[in-house]
Design a protein around this nucleic acid. Structure first.
Lengths: 206, 206
DNA sequence: TGCTGTATAGTCCATGTGGACTAATCAGTC
DNA sequence: GACTGATTAGTCCACATGGACTATACAGCA
């Protein structure tokens, strides 16, 4: 019963989230995402972008709102988010935020966590904390078990590193949850939602 | 000038590395890799496995060594590693071990680092350490710059987490390099290379 | 004036992935 | 003795990815 939300790719989610800031054409999405260094989180190539947007349109998560043309340049097809699209982002983030498999998906969910309300985000991160502690325990058990069986150390380096990284994430997560839970920590969309976006857009024009 | 080594997929590398322990048919590779929890590092599906093996064969990195049949079951095509295949693993690991982009590839390179000689491994990890320190600095700069521009904290959570994780990896890496550099730390293939493999194979049979 | 390089806004296609499907065998069980 | 479910060993196909390619416009420079 894989629904539309399950079928969202990482880039698809980021596109939908981006459209919350305003209507855009694919090429502009690429520029903006590169400026913001979103390519740390997903690889961004033109082929994939145009295909992704077409797919999201077929799924009814975004819609064409116009085709412009400047001089003799290629046409620019501008897209806008549908209600279903806005819901899909929220639902996707809600699903991925607590999961400890798929690190890629988690990083995007965290980057887009501000699309949830604060209570939900905190709650889901608490769930994640528990799952992460479980994963850490599993790694520890697996490693001691392997050592008991006489597996040489050089085969366990990667597991060891994973333990170190997971431990660090646990520590960070504890601190992060405590901070988010404090109403002084800012949350949600800023008062003037398009301000930041427009500034960056202007910067990109020059 | 993308050569055969560049075109290796993560699963492809693990398959080649696995064949160093003995000839195998694809289905057995899947079972073994699942038992060893190699699916922590790469996703393992049958479709992808058979396709990967076929691709590696076309590239001359492995070869068919026989087709058996037990009763009326489907045929089992067994494969063996070629010299080119053995070289390709080493070269791939050598390339990926120092790189700080593509975390997935790095984890596999680390897991297969024992295919390199100790000096090479240490040297490449030292290179990685420098690159990782650079990446950490870039994150720090990016974050202070964003804060100076007034970007609200909730948008920087993911960067913050990344910093924490990278810092932990730096610490682990320093310790790991020091240990590897000590000749008391075991390295390379064990004296009886197939022993561990055979034990696991037997266990899987039951 | 002509030339080079880069930005704009895409299309197209080879390839890798993953999930559904097949089909036989074997172990357990009621 | 029939039925169920897991294991064995794969095939097949829809689809997502990414890199090559296209074609126009504009800016700088000599």
């Amino acid at each position: 019963m894989r629904d539309a939300v399950d079928r969202l790719t990482p880039l698809g989610v980021m596109v939908l989230a981006l459209l919350r800031e305003g209507d855009m054409h694919p090429y502009e999405m690429i520029r903006l995402m590169r400026i913001r260094r979103d390519d740390r989180l997903v690889s961004i190539t033109t082929g994939t972008m145009y295909n992704t947007v077409a797919r999201l349109e077929r799924a009814g998560l975004l819609e064409e709102v116009g085709v412009e043309r400047e001089g003799n340049r290629p046409e620019r097809t501008t897209y806008t988010l549908t209600d279903a699209g806005a819901d899909a982002v929220v639902e996707w983030v809600r699903r991925e935020l607590p999961r400890v498999d798929n690190p890629t998906e988690f990083r995007i969910a965290l980057a887009e966590a501000h699309n949830l309300d604060r209570e939900t985000a905190v709650e889901l991160l608490v769930v994640r904390r528990a799952a992460l502690a479980g994963a850490h325990l599993t790694l520890t058990e697996g490693r001691t078990h392997a050592q008991a069986k006489g597996v040489p150390e050089q085969y366990l380096l990667e597991v060891e590193r994973e333990q170190a990284v997971v431990a660090a994430e646990l520590a960070w997560l504890d601190a992060a949850i405590a901070r988010l839970d404090d109403p002084d920590f800012p949350w949600g969309a800023p008062a003037e939602p398009t301000e930041r976006y427009l500034a960056q857009r202007k910067a990109a024009r020059r």
